[in-house]
Amino acid sequence: MTSPNGGLPSRLAPRHAVPEPVAVRFDAAADPRRALRMELAGLRHQVVGVTGCIIAGVDGLLILHDSRSSGEPHDVAAMAAAAHGISRTCGGALGQGAFQEVTIRNRDGCLVVYAVGELALLAVVGDGGVNVARLHLEARPVLGRLATLL
């Protein structure tokens, strides 16, 4: 008899036995950001070629990401904020009002940054084949819902 409960099955263990620490499990249903994650996953599934979605503050700090791409989410968040910065400056200088979106297209992919309310950004990374017009259409309702969720 070497076990602490004297060899008894655990349910027959003495009352004074110290309960074993329960491993903390990630419970998806209890995740307070579940609704946000669902929105990002929905966008990624709806538009072919989207490899990652990131929500960042306008300060460049990562809030949430749903990335499958190789880009480091924190870096993408910072780049989104930088893109937002130059775009907002342009909007101000040209008297065109608040920032809405900016699309950076490269030969093999793109980065699209949308404003989510005043303080947050949605950055979407896509591969070379992404349907940008479709992405804009699908993103519009998502932005409204994200703004209320945040």
């Binding site: 072919v48 297209r105 084949g129 349907n131 940008v132 017009a133 479709r134 804009h136 259409l137």
Partner: peptide, 29 residues
């Protein structure tokens, strides 16, 4: 390649031609 329109006419009251363009890009692809 992008689904964006270079130009459109009509569609008034029946369909949004920019939405039609983006959606049908997927058909062509």
């Amino acid at each position: 390649t992008s689904g964006l329109t270079l130009g459109y006419l009509g569609g008034d009251g029946v369909m949004d031609m920019t939405v039609a363009a983006a959606a049908n890009t997927d058909v062509v692809r």
